[in-house]
């Protein structure tokens, strides 16, 4: 990210979510963004995932500036390069567990996503829950499914927005360890936003943020 600024209009007022932020993340690194709500960490995540675009400055993914990409190129980006994990899991309640994991592949037009999905489920240890409905799962299990879904299409970058926010400490730690484990196995780059310094400790690099700016390195 190069001198990235992001402004919003909120109820008639201009809100500066990010103010001249520059950040460079190397491949395979696990970076944690720590700060309180409203510090801009989520915004930074969205910009990194090309779900949002800077008001000023550029965001580059593997050299490509996100704001220069066309819509189909952006779609390809999401389908191939980036995976998202959310605080509230954001699973689709009307689909079963394995069907949830299949969704990215189906959206991309993959013919037979079942084997890949099952494999990914197994890798998070939930193969036997494949045909359950999501509301039958515990919080931790749901987040695992979410992670499986985020990874099923083999992205290079995983963006996790408060992944442990809705989990108790023990479950949350398990999830964090899972993330670390996955990073090891797959040489994934992980960018995680969290308000918990303890959670952030699992990362390679911790960046503090406040009021749209980074405060420490």
């Amino acid at each position: 990210m190069e001198h990235v600024t992001r402004d919003y209009a909120a109820e008639g007022e201009r809100v500066r979510a990010l103010n001249d932020v520059s950040l460079s993340v190397g491949s395979g690194r696990f970076v944690a963004l720590v700060g309180r709500s409203g510090c801009g960490k989520s915004t930074l995540l969205h910009l990194a995932g090309a779900m949002d675009f800077p008001t000023a400055g550029h965001v580059r993914l593997e050299g490509l500036a996100t704001d220069a990409l066309s819509e189909p190129e952006l779609t390809r980006l999401r389908r191939e390069k980036v995976g998202f994990v959310f605080q509230s899991f954001q699973l689709l309640n009307t689909l079963s567990v394995v069907e949830n994991v299949e969704v990215p592949l189906l959206l991309a037009g993959r013919r037979n996503p079942r084997p890949a999905a099952m494999e990914r489920l197994a890798s998070v240890g939930l193969a036997e829950l494949a045909h359950r409905m999501t509301h039958q799962l515990s919080g931790g299990q749901m987040q695992r499914v979410a992670i499986a879904r985020a990874l099923v299409h083999g992205p290079r970058l995983l963006l996790a927005d408060e992944p442990t926010g809705n989990l108790d400490t023990a479950t949350g730690n398990a999830i964090l360890h899972l993330l670390r484990q996955i990073r090891e196995e797959q040489k994934l780059t992980i960018l995680m936003a969290t308000h918990s310094a303890e959670a952030a400790a699992i990362a390679d690099v911790v960046i503090h943020m406040r009021d749209g700016q980074m405060v420490q390195d």
Binding site: G49, E71, R78, Q90, V103, P104, L107, R149, H153
Partner: peptide, 9 residues
Amino acid sequence: GILRFLGGT
């Protein structure tokens, strides 16, 4: 929204 995040157009 989720679908968009997951690559839906």
